[in-house]
Nucleic acid binder design. Sequence first.
RNA 1: GUGGGCGUAGCGUAGCGGUUAACGCGCCAGGUUGUGGCCCUGGAGACCGAGGGUUCAAAUCCCUCCGUCCACCCCA
Length: 401
Amino acid sequence: MTSAEQPSKPRKFAAPRGTADILPEDWPYWKYVRDAAERVCESFGYRRIETPIFEHAGVFLRTSGESSDIVAKEVYLFEDRGHDMLALRPEGTANVMRAYIEHGMASLPQPVRLFYIGPNFRYDRPQAGRYRQHTQLGVEAVGDADALLDAEVIDLLVTLFRELGLSEFTVKLNTIGDQTCRPAYVDALRSYYRPLLSQVCDDCRMRFEKNPLRLLDCKEQRCQSAVAGAPRLHGHLCDACREHFARLRAYLAALDITYVIDEQLVRGIDYYTRTVFEFHPHEEGAQSSLGSGGRYDGLVELLGGPPTPGVGFGTGFERLIINIKRQGVSVPPTPAPSLYIAHLTPGAALAAVKLGRAARLAGLQVVVAAAGRSLKAQMRHADAKGAAFAAIIGADELASG
RNA sequence: GUGGGCGUAGCGUAGCGGUUAACGCGCCAGGUUGUGGCCCUGGAGACCGAGGGUUCAAAUCCCUCCGUCCACCCCA
């Protein structure tokens, strides 16, 4: 039998691995989170910005750090037809800083407060709360170095969680120093680890070379004693960093925000300086981080801009929604139609579509029945839709107008 | 990248070697009804993830692949 004789069925496609369709029944959750995010950001004076979902690859490759997992194995890289090397954005900050520079926002009153909501992409193995395309709310306060802003963005995220009805979470906080004090600390850390290299895991040997700070958050059992005995970063902080952290803590205290200091907390992206923080749900499990961020005072310079401090965070919609469901928060349902119009004859159908338009103009949410169905089917449909009222147009109603 | 679980109608499941693959929900049609819901009847819908193998016989056993979920890692 030749292939011409057996017509092959068209292939059925599924959404690509690690992506998901957001179906109508999930939309109330998305709307709930999005509305709350916009409301809270605006209440803090943040203005919305949206950047393209892809950028010149260098925007991310140069900023996140070549040894970071994001750059090393998770970025979607592609060359377009004009031979430009582009990257689907894996995170939200570097591209917003690119826009800050490109549009001369340094000449606006500082700090510039920005927020954005959109998809990010990372090639990673999917699991609960982890997707190759996920949606983040990002918030950035750019152009001022005071710890007031560190506290402000943390407060903003706390406020959002409260607004969403999420009560069970912990704020982890740390400071990882800056260009002044971190090099000395890194030297001390290397000196400490050098004789231990034969005992630690392969990843740690790599970290030793490329990103020593991350030695601190190795989860391998065999490395734990090394981690425990490592010199403490907090002992090496310069006066400016120590003072910044103290000020941040004073602001947080004033705001009554409780947190735990976790000296092991180190972020996966290289551009962070001083403040780093993560929000964790109490219920441990897959998606351990509900939101995280920190200060990135050198980032704008890395992208060719003037020295510009900044602080911000990202929080994932999918994970927020998982926790909203887990904590039993109820969200407003999609509104049911106020009017359902049933019709019994072809002539009545004509009248029905006209009535539908008129009713919508009057502000009702209206569903007109599909043609050719029995009245029983139409009424059943009206009921399934939860319509408040049903109008029925039959021969009599047509005749009487 | 590493490990484990699972893939049977749109969804949730049963069947785990023997003839037309079952049930619930949903969908469609009809009956009943004071036009819906409830109840009753009927119907459509599955080459049992894909390919190969074992067997007289495979959804059922074996192998490979793919997908998916969960965990590690990483992170939102």
